[in-house]
């Protein structure tokens, strides 16, 4: 229920840049995910939206109103923390009620709101327990309920699922998305897990070293990466990035030759190809190498091919098996090749 604009946001910690030149316009009801490795500035950006950090420069606006000088407690945002941050001395009921109490919601309404929020995350039976008596997943849901309970303008979630095991994480992901759609609250979500980003986001903001690398829908990020960082960060296993040379429309690297490429420029170029756009062929093809490893996962088999010194990941048929060090040829789907400038990492379009 709020549009958030970040305009030329800079954050410096002493002499170190935390966040540089961040410009993002988050639409009302949008689910936006900040994705990046640790230390990339995503959490700092979120904390600035929350009002827990002040930007060194730039403006944060919510529904057009400048928020920079407004204290965290006066911004209508609710935050879910990585470590849940449940108040240990209070029961789950009191935890969920805390924001209502702080914001002066009439006592008579508090109980119904607490129970409603607890119901949404299926915690009704645990209301009189202390946080220590709950499992990780339950604590997570309690933290979520505490954020939901006062129906804020904005949800901020800082790696809320990173302390859960894989199975629970998947279940909670679905819950979070469902609740967000149900309540239609603008949500900013920070994670380093690209699966979470891909599955949850309306749009993903990829950050590295304090700077935004690309903003786009999950499809755009996946199919149209702006640079080698984005290309290599998204996808599991990630995109193969092979450094080589481009001349006369032909890309060459040890064991690798791709012809018929658009001849926009030559020189040192990095070729990107996703494992699923590679296929094992009989006879010579784009890539000649030897089998370095075979990993059957059941639904598919990942084949690692060694060409020169480079290891290339290939998604092969589920039945594919091969001995180590046997020669293998791999063909690429040439419509899904990406070329990047090796020096800058930028995409060549």
């Amino acid at each position: 229920m709020a549009r958030i604009e970040l305009a030329d946001i800079q954050k410096k910690f002493g002499l170190v840049w935390g966040v540089r030149d961040v410009n993002i316009d988050i639409a009302d009801e949008e689910f936006i995910v900040f994705l990046g490795p640790s230390g990339c500035g995503k959490t700092t950006t979120m904390r600035m939206i929350a009002g827990l950090e002040e930007p060194t420069e730039g403006e944060i606006r919510m529904d057009g109103e400048v928020m920079n000088d407004i204290d965290a407690r006066d911004r209508d945002v609710a935050m879910v923390f990585q470590g849940y941050a449940l108040y240990p001395n209070m029961t789950i009921y009191e935890n969920i009620r805390f924001p209502l109490r702080m914001r002066g919601v009439p006592r008579a309404e508090q109980d119904a709101l607490v129970r409603q929020a607890a119901g949404l995350v299926e915690l009704t039976d645990y209301l009189d327990r202390k946080p220590q008596a709950l499992s990780g997943g339950q604590r997570q849901r309690a933290a979520l309920a505490r954020a939901i309970v006062r129906q804020p303008q904005v949800f901020l979630m800082d790696e809320p699922l990173s302390n859960l095991d894989a199975k629970l994480r998947q279940a909670m992901r679905v819950q979070i998305k469902h609740i967000q759609r149900q309540l239609r609250i603008t949500t900013v979500y920070v994670t380093h897990d690209q699966i979470e980003a891909m599955t949850l986001a309306d749009r993903i903001v990829i950050m590295q070293s304090g700077a935004v690398q690309q903003i786009g829908t999950p499809d755009q990020i996946y199919n149209d990466p702006a640079n080698t960082f984005v290309a290599g960060f998204i996808g599991a296993p990630p995109m193969n990035l092979i450094a080589g040379r481009l001349a006369d429309g032909t890309f060459t690297a040890p064991g690798l030759r791709v012809t018929g490429l658009p001849e926009r420029r030559g020189g040192k170029v990095t070729l990107g190809i996703r494992p699923e756009d590679c296929h094992v062929t009989v006879g010579a093809d784009h890539l000649q190498g030897i089998v370095f490893g075979v990993e059957p996962t059941g639904e598919t088999t990942y084949l690692t091919v060694k060409a020169g010194e480079k290891l290339v990941e290939v998604k092969a048929d589920r039945d594919f098996r091969a001995d180590l060090d046997t020669p293998v040829a791999v063909g690429f789907d040439t419509t899904r090749l990406y070329l990047f400038d090796t020096a800058s990492g930028d995409r060549l379009r």
Binding site: A50, A72, P99, R146
Partner: peptide, 12 residues
């Protein structure tokens, strides 16, 4: 985090 949570929850 505990204090940050309380602050965003509206506590002085």
């Amino acid at each position: 985090e505990l204090e940050d949570a309380a602050r965003t929850d509206g506590a002085s």
